[in-house]
Structure formats: C-alpha cells, structure tokens
Amino acid sequence: MGDRRTQIIEAAQSLLAEGDGTLSVRSVAARAGLGASTLRHYFPTQRDLFRAVFDAGADGLISDFRIRDRSVPADERLRECLEQLLPPLQSDDSSNPSWIILLADILRPGGPEAGRTAWGAAATRARERGTTWLELLREEGVLAEGSVRGHTDFLLTVVDGISVSRAVPFERLDPDQERGVLDTAIRSVLRTP
C-alpha cells in the first residue's frame, strides 16, 4: 500500500518539524500509528527512512522556474535556478545559525546521521536538477563545450562556496559580490554570443 509509505514519511517529517532529529524507528512508527515491523517493511534501514524523508522534502524545494523559457536569456534562467540552492541571507548580516548547525553536524566525526543524510539528499537532488537544467541548455545550443556532469559539478561547487560564506560571518561576500561570482561561473559554462 503506497499510502503507508507516505504516512510514514509524513510522520517522520512532523517529528523533525518538532525538533526530533533522531527519527527513531519506534517514534516514527508510533507517530504513524504502525508497528515497527511494518515500518521496517517499507524502510528496511534507518538510512532508507532518512533518505526518503529528506528526498521528499527536497522534491518540493527545487524548482525549474523558467529554465525552458527561451524568451529569457539563458544566464538569467540558470542564475534563477541556482540561487534557490543557496541558504537564505540573514537580514542583519550575522551568521546563519541553522546552516552552522547543519555544517557542524556533517563535519563532526560521529555527528548525527540525520545531518549527513540530509546533506547527501540535498546534494543528490541539486546534482539531478542541475544536470537537467544544463541538459536543457545543451539541447538549446547555449551550453559551452565539455561534459554536462563537469559543468554541473563546477557550478554546484561555486554554490557550495557561497553557501558556506553565508553560513559563517568571516570575510563574507556582499550580495553584489555573490552575484558577480555566480555570474562569472555561469558565463564559464555558457557559449558566448
């Protein structure tokens, strides 16, 4: 029953929204009104459960916006898509606490599995979407020579760098500098007219 899978994912998401980052099988099963063995039928490992929860969350966050709209310049369309992968800017120019916590969890040896799984799911989705965007631009004839995978990896590395810059308050780029860096990266993967 596909609805059970959705029911389990929604129960896990509600626990996460309440601040329970552990997502234990028992707590998720209880929230979903199921036994642990039923949950294990749909998600044999805790990693499978984490991945499904974070994938479901990422699916609703990344949009293609106007990437197919050829009336808009390709660089603008690609920038619009890439900018959504960045964490929100803090209005007071301070560090972004949620990103610092996530980065700390990922980098800390023995840190929570949920943080690494969330980052992995987000990175996988970003790579999939980025590849799709660049494939569309290749079909349109505006992508520079080279592999789509290589161009995607390059652009996502730039996005990751800007993300880290937003997370920590040291030597942060201002919004105009960020846009300049992103525009330079975009120009390097597009054909020049």
Rank of each mutant, 00 (worst) to 15 (best):
F43C: 03
F43G: 03
F43I: 05
F43S: 00
F43E: 01
P44W: 00
T45M: 00
T45I: 02
Q46T: 12
R47F: 10
R47K: 07
D48R: 01
D48F: 01
D48N: 08
L49D: 02
L49S: 04
F50K: 02
F50P: 07
A52G: 05
A52T: 02
A52W: 00
V53Q: 03
V53G: 03
V53D: 04
V53C: 03
F54L: 11
F54N: 09
F54S: 05
F54E: 14
F54A: 07
F54K: 01
D55L: 09
A56K: 03
A56I: 05
A56R: 10
G57C: 04
G57S: 10
G57I: 08
G57T: 04
A58G: 06
A58P: 09
A58S: 14
A58V: 14
A58D: 15
D59Y: 08
D59I: 10
D59E: 15
D59F: 11
G60Y: 07
G60C: 07
G60F: 11
L61Q: 15
L61C: 09
L61H: 13
I62R: 02
S63T: 13
S63P: 06
S63Y: 08
S63W: 09
D64C: 14
D64Q: 15
F65K: 12
R66P: 07
R66F: 11
R66K: 09
R66M: 12
R66W: 11
R66T: 13
I67W: 04
I67T: 06
I67G: 05
I67Q: 06
I67S: 09
R68I: 10
R68N: 15
R68E: 15
R68F: 14
D69Q: 13
D69V: 14
D69E: 14
D69G: 11
D69M: 12
S71E: 15
S71M: 14
V72K: 04
V72W: 05
V72L: 14
P73K: 01
P73S: 05
A74M: 08
A74P: 13
D75T: 05
D75M: 01
E76A: 15
E76M: 14
E76I: 14
E76Y: 10
R77T: 11
R77I: 13
R77S: 13
L78G: 08
L78Y: 02
R79K: 12
R79L: 12
R79I: 07
E80C: 08
E80D: 11
E80G: 03
E80K: 01
C81A: 15
C81I: 08
C81K: 01
C81D: 08
C81N: 10
L82D: 03
L82K: 02
L82S: 02
E83M: 15
E83D: 08
E83K: 15
Q84A: 12
Q84L: 08
Q84C: 06
Q84E: 07
L85M: 14
L85N: 06
L85T: 07
L85Y: 04
L86R: 01
L86A: 04
L86S: 03
L86N: 02
L86H: 00
P87C: 07
P87S: 03
P87M: 06
P87W: 02
P88M: 03
P88D: 10
L89N: 04
L89D: 11
L89F: 02
Q90E: 09
Q90S: 07
Q90T: 06
Q90F: 00
Q90K: 03
Q90D: 06
S91M: 07
S91Q: 10
S91C: 00
D92A: 05
D92H: 05
D92V: 06
D93Q: 04
D93W: 01
D93G: 05
D93M: 01
